[in-house]
Amino acid sequence: MVEELKIINLTKVYPNGKKANDSINITVQKGKVVGIIGPNGAGKTTLIRQILGLLAPTSGRIEIFGEDISKKPWLIKENISYAPQTILYYPSLTVKETIEFALRFRGYRGKELSNKLKESLNYSGLEQVKNFSGYQLSPGLARLLLISIAFTQDTPILILDEPTSMLDIVTKTHIWKIISELNNKVVLIASHDMNEIRKLCHRVYLIINGKIIAEGSPEDISTIMKMPIEITFIPVNSDKAEKVVLYAKPIAFEKEENVFNVAFENLNEGIDFIKEINSCSGIRYLQLESPSFEKTVLKLMEGRNG
């Protein structure tokens, strides 16, 4: 079976000796969304720039549909659409013109072009600002335009570097919905937003200092380390709840006004505690994280960096 995008033993060493990527192996198949997470300077953008053919790998190779891109570089532009991390725009071109040129470079003309343009402006929500020039756009709108350019080109592979940073929650949710509905494409997302990665990605690669230190589904990654279960709740009766907490002996306990934060070593203890609290004092608000993807990733990063 031919993988749409395959990164094999990819290593990138800059002339100053800095190893930005170290033996990276990533495979992405059709219909899958793959996430790359890692702290700043971990090597995510370097990896993307190599996939885009902007930087040369020191060793290893990148394959698109089983073909080595260093031998067939035209496959990159033909098959990949890209939304960069940096806020970039064509200052003089309007939103409509920018999307139109992206489509015209893809060969769209006439009726097909105008239909596609209209569709793109509508689904991205950029219709209302279609006549704004690039320099007039807020960072959020410029980001949305970059994402729209990538989506509208309808290529089999989409690479999105920090796609929803600077977007408001409504637009962010809308973009997430579009990405999650892309069933026939390969999507590679680099992001700092754990919530985004957890919501969208089928598989996640955690990169630190250029090396993959963990991989798997967000659920797999969440269970890599033994992490405490954290419960935040507001009881109906605070005095009674406090007694239950003291009796349950959690590994951590904090109370701020009427908000209780407790932590237990395992899920079963947490569930038993919630039942007890509910029967003794009642619960007005409850939030449970077990285990938290974000906290596990943070712990993994701290472990590697620290």
């Binding site: 532009k77 890209y82 960069p84 970039l88 992206a102 470079f105 350019i149």
Partner: peptide
């Protein structure tokens, strides 16, 4: 670099 990256979003070399 940033302009090269911007043009990387279009299907033109």
């Amino acid at each position: 670099p940033e302009v090269l990256e911007l043009y990387a979003t279009f299907f033109i070399t």
